[in-house]
Write a protein that binds this DNA or RNA. Sequence first.
DNA 1: TGCATCTTGATGCATATGCATGAATTCGTA
DNA 2: TACGAATTCATGCATATGCATCAAGATGCA
Lengths: 144, 144
Amino acid sequence: MSEKPAEAVIRAWARLTRAQQRAQGEIEAALKAAGLPALAWYDVLLETERAGKGGLRPFELERAMLLAQYNLSRLVERMASAGLVERRPCDDDGRGHRVAVTDAGRVMRRRMWPVYAQAIERAVGNHLTAREAKTLGDLLGRLG
Amino acid sequence: MSEKPAEAVIRAWARLTRAQQRAQGEIEAALKAAGLPALAWYDVLLETERAGKGGLRPFELERAMLLAQYNLSRLVERMASAGLVERRPCDDDGRGHRVAVTDAGRVMRRRMWPVYAQAIERAVGNHLTAREAKTLGDLLGRLG
DNA sequence: TGCATCTTGATGCATATGCATGAATTCGTA
DNA sequence: TACGAATTCATGCATATGCATCAAGATGCA
């Protein structure tokens, strides 16, 4: 394994990056145009909502979001001072804490979703049939 | 058009981002581990080599790389002071200039390629059959 | 031609990221 | 239990990015 990549692999990689950059660019622009926070904030809100009442540990968020530790630490800090999440002491581990979404955070996520969803549709859905979208998702899942 | 995205579309988008981040992370790490410059530098070197003798205009690079204008301006500046590209006055347009690769730049790109190629294979090729890689590339091309 | 407008590119300033490291706590194990 | 190693998270400092704006040259058109 890990020899020279075939042409098709190189092309797939090049287009993967390009497609992602383009789509993300459009989506971020749509959010910003609507006066909403960036995508990363949405992801934190979603993960913390999914985690339920007790929230989750920063290192869990870090893995879920593929974010560097220091990066996540500061993201949470900014979101906390914006009132969208809160840090709570962690009973069973004195080193860390838990990050939980606030009511304002839940409201914000609901406000973001329609804009986000429409942008996804424009950037991705519009270019593919339903069948293609499924195939694409499956293939990308293999890389995950 | 542009209504609510289907589940498959949302999943495709989520995995697109995740797969790209993961692959890019691995590839950047491989380059860094080899003491080589980042991916963006490779792209500039490749584009300027492709452009041939006269190089190309910053705004062309900007579009080819989906990079913001100020961002590209500074990237070129750093690469120029590293001796990998050079800025030349532009005959037919006094506002701008041309960016051309230097010999050192060509050498650097050749040095980067084996590391880059192997990282692509590991991050992408290893997970897909040849047929799948082609399908993935085609589908991603539709988003471009 | 003359002047408003657009294009091209750079840059000051605020913000975000990367890197190295530190501080607190827990874990593994002798 | 005791203590070195590992985990969790924050932070100072350097670098990179985003935003607004500026300067200089091209372009269009009255």
